[in-house]
Nucleic acid binder design. Structure first.
Lengths: 128, 128
DNA sequence: CATCGCATTGACGTTAAAGTCAATTGCTGA
DNA sequence: TCAGCAATTGACTTTAACGTCAATGCGATG
């Protein structure tokens, strides 16, 4: 495991711009260390970027992604906070289960659409 | 099955604004008929709204949703168009399969996070 | 030492997806 | 007939998530 990644390494690996990484830093999603003014990204930052992009693909906003990332971190020490956290996690999971239903329905409809196309193609293939 | 729905009926059912429905109409996603100037939404429009919102929950843009809706419609008549359509459908399905992987990973991590919280809570519950 | 090229910073611009607001319009019931 | 209320229209505004650009730093290299 490498110790540090440069900003351009990450932009290439994930196909995002430096602006995007700076934006995520401003938003407090990642916290690269500095050598002088230059950002050095640790493996943990790289992993966070992975998680951010995964969240984006699922249609989560930056704020939602921030919340989710909080959940991955060490659990809070206080009982009230713990209970709150558990409730929030459960909410997000329900959110994800809804997305899963949406996803399966969409996939099923696309399956059906493709079948129709293939059938139509077979008809044409036979007739011409 | 009702013949028509008013705009406010749909805004209430789906918890969206009239502005949103007008926007979807401008974007060519739905095509309510008119009685005078008043929009009348048919069951097919209502179903389209369902599909639009499902797409939104999955993080698709309006343009992507427009493409997906096209796929649900009757297959084109021409062979080249049919093959193109099949290819596009396959692309969207791959897109959705990626989302599914992302989703399962996220769910797994949230499961783990919740477990950590529950464990920590058990510790505190025992110790105090 | 000068310059080359990657990095940073700050400011302003852009795009998608609506929100908001004001000025009508048109039906409906008293 | 008229007041009231839902709908429409057009214009302008907003927000998130970056893009773009110009000015500047700075470390290595010839």
């Amino acid at each position: 495991m490498r110790e540090y990644y440069s900003i351009t390494e990450l932009t290439r690996e994930f196909d995002i711009s430096t602006r995007t990484l700076r934006f995520y830093e401003d938003e407090g999603l990642i916290e690269p260390v500095r050598r002088g003014r230059t950002r050095l990204f640790r493996p943990s930052d790289r992993h966070l970027v992975r998680q951010i992009l995964r969240g984006k693909r699922l249609g989560f906003s930056i704020n939602e992604i921030r919340e989710i990332i909080q959940m991955y971190k060490a659990p809070p020490g206080e009982v009230g906070q713990l209970k709150l956290m558990i409730r929030r996690i459960e909410e997000k999971r329900e959110d994800l289960r809804q997305k899963r239903r949406d996803l399966e329905e969409t996939l099923a409809e696309l399956d059906h659409a493709e079948e129709s196309c293939v059938e139509r193609l077979a008809e044409l293939g036979v007739n011409t």
